[in-house]
Design a protein around this nucleic acid. Structure first.
Lengths: 145, 145
DNA sequence: TATAGTTGTAACAAGGATAGTTACAACTAT
DNA sequence: ATAGTTGTAACTATCCTTGTTACAACTATA
C-alpha cells in the first residue's frame, strides 16, 4: 500500500505556485498542464490545501497563491492536508481479534505504542523538510543547465 | 491511505505461534480463531512469512512455527514480508509530469531523495522493534491480571 | 493402505479508494 | 453582459483489500 500520488501532486502544485506565481495567473488549467493531471483533480487538491490554510484561491477571477513563507510549510503540513487519515493512524488494525484469546485480547494494547513510534518517526522526518528545500534544490538544478 | 491490516495480522499470528507453539498444533484454523479472520487469509499471510524465511509450515500434517529467535525478527522483516512494495517506494508519484515545464521536468529528481529520507526514517524505526519486545510486553500485561 | 485433517491456490464477489471525465451552477474582473 | 474560472456533483474504470467457497495435493497415523 502506497501513499497516494495526491501528496507528490500537492508538492508539485505548490512548487508551481511559487515558481510561476509572479509571472502568470496560476489556474487549475495551468497546473493541469504542468502536472499532466485532470484540472478537476487539481481543484480538489487545491481545495484541500486551502482548507489547511496553505493557499488562497481567487473565486471567479481565478488563480491560486501560497499564503506563507516557503520555509514555514513542511511536508507534514502538506501530507496532513491531502492524506485523509484524520482519526485513524498510519496502520490499519484487523477489526475484531478474539477477546477470549490472551493474544487477541491484548494485541492492540501491545502494538499501539510501537506503531505510534513508527508513525512519529515518519512524521518527524516529514516535518523536517520544507518547500524552501524544494525551491532551493530546484533552483540548483535549473541553474546548472 | 493506510498500511494494510496484513501487517498487524502478521504480528498477531507470529505472537500466537510463539505463545501456543509448545502447547498446541497451530494451524490456520487455530489462528483464524484468535485473529477472527478467515483461515484462507491466514494461510496467505503464513505463506508470505514462509517466503521471507520467518516461519516454516508443515504440509499435510499441519501447523506452523517460527524459525528464528524472536529478537532476530524485526517489524521491518515482517513489514517487508507482507507489504508488497518491492520495487516501488512508499510514495506514489503522479505518472507523467510535463517535460516541457521546468517544474514538471525536475520534480521527480528534486523529491526522490527527500521521500527516500522519509521512508528510511520509518524503516529504521520498524527495524528497531522485534518480536521479543512484543513477547515481553504481552507477558507483562498477562502477569498483571 | 485408507482416512482424516491440513495446506496451497484458484476463482469469484463485495467494498472502498483512486483517478479520470463531463457537466454545470456560482462567482467575479473587465 | 461576458468570459474565464472555481466548486462540486455524478458517473466511470481500475485497483487493492478482504472474505468466501471449492478442491487438489499432501502427510501423519490408525
Amino acid at each position: 500500500m502506497q501513499i497516494s500520488s495526491r501528496f507528490t501532486l500537492a508538492v508539485h502544485i505548490l512548487a508551481c505556485l511559487d515558481k510561476f506565481g509572479g509571472e502568470y495567473k496560476v489556474t487549475s488549467d495551468f497546473l493541469a498542464g504542468s502536472t499532466n493531471v485532470n484540472p478537476v483533480i487539481v481543484r480538489k487538491i487545491l481545495g484541500q490545501l486551502k482548507s489547511a490554510g496553505l493557499v488562497e484561491i481567487a473565486r471567479g477571477s481565478g488563480g491560486a497563491s501560497i499564503t506563507r513563507p516557503l520555509g514555514d510549510i513542511t511536508f507534514l503540513d502538506i501530507y496532513k492536508a491531502v492524506e485523509c487519515i484524520d482519526n485513524e493512524g498510519l496502520f490499519h488494525f484487523h477489526e475484531n481479534p478474539n477477546e477470549n484469546c490472551p493474544v487477541g485480547q491484548n494485541i492492540h494494547a501491545v502494538l499501539d505504542d510501537k506503531l505510534e513510534r513508527v508513525q512519529s518517526a515518519m512524521e518527524k522526518e516529514l516535518a523536517s523538510i520544507t518547500l524552501e528545500d524544494v525551491k532551493n534544490d530546484l533552483s540548483n538544478i535549473l541553474n546548472k543547465s
